[in-house]
């Protein structure tokens, strides 16, 4: 099978998965309790039955769930219309988009840092196996991995704000809103330190552990001995022959994490009052804002699927054997 066929198949499979997600997403919010019309007009407002019926008709809720409502909803979603948030009275797509950038910034920074440090730490620990460095970083990683997100966040928040004078929450200090970029950027960076650190520590442990076991396995392979027999130094062996092979399991994990970190950010963003998707999801959940939740679920599912597809594509360039199987 050629690489194109492989990728095409993966792409079609992703589309199918997205469709299944759409169906579940559609059904889930129709079996949940609550009356959409009531929610829109508010519980205590007295309103005539005729008025309610006409609203129901306006929303298309008088029609059967399948096929009419289903296809109408699909059509709307396809057009980028995810409905209107009950609590914010704004289109869901617009709300999601406005918070996406902030979250991507946090996740991006946190993931890049945890990948770089986690992989480096794991690589070095595996190479220097059974030394105090190995034991030390292994212990640290296990603790970091097992620590609850919100707890670590709160501890860092307390420590960072008390001793380092870092801001306790938000993205930009109120007095700096609307100021030129050179004033905003340092302020933004200060706000990002603690949430990013939290995310880095949380994921670093996981990457380190996987990388360590992966490189240990790779270092026992025959081709590593070949590389040494060629006269390569330890570093050359590790860099040229060890790293790429050991990275293979990491790539899958990175891709999966990138999808899930959006939801993982819920804790961090809530603790640090960081104005991103995670905090938005939390708000939507607390306020039972179903359209917003529905949009959020959709975004999450799609990001996990897309991340998976990216992993598959990356895999074909990292591991030539994938194309053949």
């Amino acid at each position: 099978m050629s690489r194109r066929d492989y990728l095409l198949r993966k792409f079609l499979f992703s589309l199918l998965t997205i469709f299944v997600v759409l169906v579940i997403n559609f059904m889930l919010f129709r079996v949940l309790p609550g009356d959409p019309v009531r929610s829109v007009i508010g519980r205590n407002v007295r309103i005539s039955a005729e008025m309610q019926a006409s609203l129901r008709e306006q929303f298309g809720l008088d029609k059967p769930v399948f096929p009419d409502q289903f296809f109408a909803t699909l059509q709307q979603w396809a057009g980028g219309n995810l409905g209107v948030s009950w609590s914010l009275r704004q289109p869901v797509a617009e709300v999601l988009m406005s918070k996406l950038g902030n979250t991507l910034l946090l996740i991006g920074l946190g993931q890049v840092l945890s990948i770089v440090f986690g992989v480096a730490l794991g690589l070095f620990a595996g190479w220097k196996r059974k030394t105090s460095f190995d034991v030390g970083s292994l212990t640290f990683s296990l603790i970091a991995w097992a620590t609850p997100t919100f707890w670590l966040g709160i501890i860092l928040l307390a420590a960072g704000s008390t001793w380092l004078g870092l801001p306790t929450g938000g993205i930009v200090s109120p007095q700096n809103v609307g100021k030129p970029l050179y004033t905003v950027l340092p302020d933004l960076a200060r706000h990002l330190v603690l949430p990013t650190l939290t995310m880095t520590i949380l994921y670093l442990g996981e990457y380190m552990l996987i990388m360590r076991s992966s490189i240990l396995e790779v270092l026992s392979e025959d081709y590593i001995l070949t590389a040494k027999a060629k006269g390569m130094s330890h570093w050359q062996v590790l860099w040229r022959h060890g790293l790429k092979n050991a990275m293979l399991p990491i790539v899958t994990m990175i891709a999966l994490n990138l999808g899930f970190t959006v939801s993982g950010a819920i804790y961090i963003e809530t603790v640090f009052s960081y104005d991103g998707l995670g905090k938005l999801f939390h708000t939507a959940l607390v306020r039972q804002d179903y359209p917003l939740l529905q949009g959020a679920f959709l975004l999450l599912a799609v990001s996990v699927i897309v991340a998976n597809m990216l992993a598959d594509i990356l895999y074909t360039t990292l591991d030539p054997r994938v194309k053949a199987n």
Partner: peptide, 20 residues
Amino acid sequence: RWRELAIVFQGAMNALNPVM
């Protein structure tokens, strides 16, 4: 190593790097 004393390993199945 290799320059003067080269070696062919038992079972080259795994002695070559699979991703190179």
